[in-house]
């Protein structure tokens, strides 16, 4: 039990380091864009444990958006976790009883999913808890440091850090877009629609603009470039 937990932790160290720097950027954005405190920013990171969803949530909070907007936005952005959860649920150890599933599902992120699916043996609760523990610790610590630094750092540095999360998003999209026409198509159409909403239809809020752009682009991509069996798993 204990050794499985430690094994999960050691496999989670690279995730933890990555999360530290990326959540630092989130902390700064939370302070600069939404005017949150260090504690409020940390609570968001502790309860959500996701980068894109939290960033989008900040947009809604900063704009004083509607709750339905928040719900739809989180659904749209985070629906991918359902697929990952579905995939992981197929390779769980028999120790994974319902209470363990209820707990461990908190920690299904892109990176934890990637490392867990790469394991050959069935996943145990202790292993997943170890990985989730160290990853979440990095995520929350980075957020708190970033939010605190956002108040302390020179403006030039904290403004430059606002771009960090977006840089990570670019790094996630470009490599598969190079190899798969469907991903490139979906990303370009989504960006074009998002630009159109921003300048031609500014009456649509930022959150809804993202939802509509992403759903329309993904539906078009799914029609024109349907994925083959097993392709989803290979690219994640």
């Amino acid at each position: 039990m204990k050794s499985r937990f430690l094994r999960g932790m050691s496999h989670g160290i690279p995730i933890c380091l990555g999360y530290l720097s990326v959540s630092f950027g989130f902390g700064i954005l939370a302070v600069n864009k939404a005017g949150l405190s260090v504690f409020q920013a940390s609570v968001i990171s502790a309860t959500n444990l996701t980068s894109a969803g939290q960033k989008a949530g900040l947009d809604v909070i900063a704009a004083g958006g509607a709750i339905i907007e928040m719900i739809l936005l989180q659904l749209t952005i985070n629906i991918r976790y359902s697929l990952m959860a579905l995939s992981l649920s197929q390779k769980l150890d028999r120790y994974f009883t319902t209470p363990h599933r209820l707990l461990a599902s908190y920690g299904i992120t892109d990176e934890i999913f990637a490392v867990c699916s790469a394991q050959k043996e069935p996943l145990t609760p202790a292993y997943m808890y170890g990985m989730i523990f160290i990853s979440a610790a990095g995520w929350i610590t980075g957020t708190a440091l970033g939010a605190a630094a956002g108040e302390l750092l020179p403006a030039s540095v904290s403004m430059a850090m606002e771009i960090v999360l977006y840089g990570m998003f670019i790094a996630i999209v470009i490599p598969p877009a190079k190899k798969q026409h469907g991903v490139l198509f979906a990303a370009v159409i989504a960006a074009a629609l998002s630009v159109m909403f921003r300048y031609a239809l500014p009456v649509i809020s930022e959150g809804f603009a993202i939802i509509i752009s992403a759903i329309a682009a993904s539906m078009l991509a799914a029609l024109i470039f349907p994925v083959k069996d097993g392709e989803e798993g290979a690219a994640q």
């Binding site: 894109a52 749209t76 952005i77 989504a190 759903i215 682009a217």
Partner: peptide, 10 residues
């Protein structure tokens, strides 16, 4: 499959 990339891009 395409949704996360489209969301990040938008």
């Amino acid at each position: 499959y395409y949704i996360p990339y489209a969301v990040l891009s938008a």
